[in-house]
Design a protein around this nucleic acid. Structure first.
Length: 446
RNA sequence: GUGACCGUAGCUCAGUCGGUUAGAGCGCCAGGUUGUGGCCCUGGAGGUCGUGGGUUCGAUUCCCAUCGGUCACCCCA
């Protein structure tokens, strides 16, 4: 049997219609367009501007940006080698956006850059529900301001987008990660506190105790969660200034009616985060419960070797998980648009007419479709119906010789004969007034 | 990377306690209408039963391996 090529593991095709890719539901391309459209419009309402960066970046940028010790860098990157160069498929977009900001000296544009992105990212994890190897993220990055209002704005923007989709029931959790030195002191204190309880920790908990004790905080293990109830808190290791800054963020949220849950156990997996951290999670996504997450990353620029200060804050969100949230709520996504008119042709001459007429209609802004297989009239009508075309324009030898066409309203079934050159304007009129078009009132055939 | 479960038509799934040409519904194609869709009727195409090996007279069915998938761990969007 001939080999059937298939997409690689953890990736999927987005087809023109909703499909099932290896068991998982994949919305059709029109649903993706709708989602992207709502995201773009909401971003625009906040006056964030789109930035598009390459999918391929130098490996070093990602390693230094998100941290050499992170899981992403140590085991989840897709590496592309070419000669002596090593590139990676971007696992996230904050580091690339910061790279662009530094490269193009965007601070020279004046003011603060409010940017957003939307596009694919890549991580070589084992796929599961809500987690793919090629997945799609959108997010915002405000670079050049360390004002706490920027933190609150990023959160507000994130929520506005889920609002626009009508997704409810998700929880916003926030925390402060403090400054690196504060976090470091806390990490040691936590390790010291946890060590006597080492036996209570799970296997992976014990490993984290050595490597990264902070990660124990967001454990799913109930025994560990119970243990942590009495553990020291990061907030108690932060300075007055850090706490004041954190309070300001909370005030901004509170003053605009944004509900949040303060969660001192919330931590982030990427090295560049500091101060504000937040996460939006939905109860009905399965194990991958995070819809979106983000925080402040003032030190990212220096981690990339820049001596220019570039305070930044932003969020990243997963589109696949957004769809999961849709499903859980039975939210409806608009269907793909049908053509305005489907041309039905009988005979060779009419087939040539169909092509010419379609072009003429399209030039006038009317979307037109027609059969390319020379099929029977019945088949063409069926195709028009399947495409949900509101009108069909029908012509055969008889019509061509008489210089007329038949325009049929597919909803009512009524059909009128028109002079061939009048078809576009009639169709336009009917499209504007789909209901009681007088063109169909008097003469109807069949 | 670890574990559990699962692979039969495009989709959803039956079925064979191992035995002649592997089924249904939906979808697709065609005909019933000599130039008219939806409903209905009739017919058709489409499967080496994920792949390879083993046991057997005989395997889609049993065994092993492998590939693919799902979910969970892990991690995170």
């Amino acid at each position: 049997m001939a080999k059937i090529w298939r997409n690689i593991r953890g990736a999927f095709d987005i087809l023109p219609w909703p499909s099932v890719a290896d068991g998982a539901a994949v919305p059709g391309s029109s649903a993706w367009q709708y989602v992207e459209d709502v995201i773009r419009k909401t971003m625009a309402r906040f006056h964030f501007e789109e930035i598009r960066t390459p999918v391929l970046e130098e490996e070093g940028l990602i390693v230094r940006g998100i941290g050499a010790g992170t899981d992403i860098v140590t085991k989840e990157m897709f590496v592309v080698e070419r000669g002596n160069d090593r590139y990676v498929l971007r696992p996230e977009v904050t580091a690339p956006v910061m790279r662009a900001w530094l490269q193009h000296r965007l601070e020279q544009r004046g003011g603060v850059q409010r940017l957003y992105y939307i596009g694919p990212c890549f991580r070589a994890e084992r796929p599961q529900k809500g987690r793919y190897r090629q997945f799609h993220q959108f997010g915002c990055e405000t670079i050049g301001a360390d004002d706490p209002r920027a933190d609150a704005e990023a959160i507000a923007l994130m929520l506005a987008i889920y609002d626009a989709f009508g997704i409810t029931g998700s929880r916003l959790r926030i925390n402060t990660l403090g400054l690196p030195e504060e976090r470091k002191r806390y990490t040691e204190a936590l390790r010291a506190w946890l060590t006597p309880h080492k036996e209570t920790l799970s296997e992976s908990g014990q490993r984290r105790l050595e490597k990264n004790p902070l990660r124990i905080l967001d454990t799913k293990d109930e025994r560990e969660q119970a243990l942590l109830r009495d553990a020291p808190l990061l907030i108690d290791f932060t300075s007055e200034q850090t706490r004041e800054r954190y309070e300001r963020v909370k005030e901004c949220l509170g003053e605009t009616g944004i509900d949040f849950i303060e969660d001192f156990l919330l931590v982030r997996g990427l090295d560049y985060y500091m101060h504000t951290a937040f996460e939006l999670e939905s109860p009905d996504l399965g194990a991958q419960s995070a819809l979106a997450g983000g925080g402040r990353y003032d030190l990212l620029a220096s981690a990339l070797g820049s001596d220019r200060p570039a305070p930044g804050v932003g969020f990243a969100a997963g589109i696949e998980r957004l769809f999961l949230a849709f499903d859980a709520q039975d939210a409806t996504i608009p269907e793909a648009l049908p053509p305005d008119v489907f041309l039905v042709a009988l005979g060779n001459d009419a087939q040539r007419w169909a092509f010419r007429e379609a072009q003429r209609l399209r030039q006038q802004g009317i979307s037109a479709s027609f059969d390319l297989k020379g099929r029977s009239m019945k088949a063409q009508m069926r195709e028009a119906h399947r495409q949900r075309a509101p009108f069909t324009l029908i012509a055969g030898q008889t019509e061509l010789e008489a210089g007329v066409v038949q325009l049929k309203n597919m909803d009512s079934g009524e059909q009128v004969q028109l002079p061939a050159d009048k078809a576009p304007e009639h169709i336009s009129k009917c499209l504007r007034d789909p209901r009681g078009s007088e063109d169909f009132a008097s003469t109807s055939s069949r």
